[in-house]
Amino acid sequence: TEYKLVVVGAGGVGKSALTIQLIQNHFVDEYDPTIEDSYRKQVVIDGETCLLDILDTAGQEEYSAMRDQYMRTGEGFLCVFAINNTKSFEDIHQYREQIKRVKDSDDVPMVLVGNKCDLAARTVESRQAQDLARSYGIPYIETSAKTRQGVEDAFYTLVREIRQH
Rank of each mutant, 00 (worst) to 15 (best):
E125S: 10
N84Q: 07
A154D: 01
T19E: 07
A82E: 15
A154H: 02
Y95N: 07
I54C: 08
I35A: 03
R67N: 11
Q69R: 04
E30S: 06
L112V: 09
L5Q: 01
Y136A: 07
R96W: 15
S126P: 12
V111F: 13
V80R: 00
Q21E: 11
G9D: 04
L132A: 10
I83K: 15
R72Y: 01
E2A: 07
R148D: 14
N84K: 05
Q164W: 04
I138V: 10
S16Q: 05
V13I: 09
N85R: 03
K4L: 06
Y39W: 07
R127G: 11
P139F: 03
L132M: 15
I20W: 09
V102Y: 07
R148K: 10
G76K: 00
A154V: 14
Y63P: 12
F77Q: 00
Y31N: 04
K15I: 00
I99M: 14
D91L: 15
D32I: 04
G114I: 02
A82L: 00
V13F: 00
D153N: 08
R160H: 12
V108P: 10
Q94N: 15
F81C: 14
T34R: 02
S88V: 07
I83G: 13
K87E: 15
A121E: 05
T19A: 13
I99T: 07
C117H: 09
Y95T: 11
G76H: 04
S135M: 13
E48I: 10
D131H: 12
D153Q: 12
Y156Q: 13
R160W: 09
M110D: 00
S144H: 10
Y3H: 15
E75R: 04
Q60V: 15
E142A: 06
E2N: 02
T73P: 04
V44F: 04
L22S: 14
L18P: 00
L158N: 00
L119A: 14
K41I: 11
T1K: 10
H165E: 13
S135D: 05
E30T: 08
R127K: 12
F89Y: 14
S126H: 14
D104Q: 15
Q164N: 13
G74T: 02
L78R: 02
V28K: 08
V102M: 01
E61R: 09
I45H: 11
G9F: 01
Q94M: 09
R122I: 09
L5D: 00
V43P: 06
C79F: 12
E90R: 09
E62P: 03
R127Y: 04
K100C: 15
Q128P: 04
C50A: 12
D107A: 08
V6I: 07
Y156H: 13
S64G: 15
G74I: 06
D68S: 06
M110F: 14
D32K: 02
Q128V: 13
N85L: 05
R160M: 09
L119S: 15
Y136S: 03
M66K: 08
I141H: 06
V108C: 04
D118A: 02
E2D: 11
R72S: 05
Q24S: 15
V13A: 12
R122Y: 10
S105A: 08
A133N: 00
E97C: 13
E152F: 10
S144A: 08
V13Q: 07
T147I: 12
L22C: 13
T123S: 12
T49N: 11
E152Q: 09
V151H: 15
S38L: 15
E161F: 09
E61P: 10
V80C: 12
V151A: 11
D46V: 06
G14V: 00
L18N: 01
G114P: 00
Y3D: 00
L158T: 01
T19R: 04
T73E: 15
H26M: 15
V111T: 05
A65Q: 02
A154R: 00
E2Y: 15
K103I: 02
D29W: 14
T49H: 11
A10C: 08
G47W: 06
Y31H: 09
R127L: 08
T73G: 12
V151D: 06
V113T: 03
F27Q: 04
V151M: 07
A10W: 09
Y70P: 02
G137H: 00
T143I: 12
D118V: 02
V44C: 09
S126K: 10
Y31P: 02
I35R: 06
Q42F: 13
M66F: 01
L158C: 07
R163W: 09
Q24G: 15
K4E: 14
G9I: 01
I162Q: 04
D153P: 03
E125G: 09
E97P: 00
Y39N: 03
C50L: 13
R67G: 09
L55W: 14
T86I: 00
D91K: 15
Q128I: 12
I141C: 06
G76Q: 01
G150I: 10
H165R: 14
G9M: 01
L132Y: 05
L158H: 00
V43H: 14
K146A: 14
V159C: 10
L5K: 04
S38E: 04
V7G: 03
E152C: 10
V159M: 15
K116V: 15
V13Y: 02
G14Q: 01
L52H: 07
D131A: 13
H165P: 13
T143A: 09
K100L: 05
V6P: 00
F89W: 13
C117L: 08
V111E: 00
I92Y: 06
D46T: 09
R67L: 10
I20A: 04
T123Y: 06
S64N: 09
F81K: 03
Q69T: 07
R67V: 15
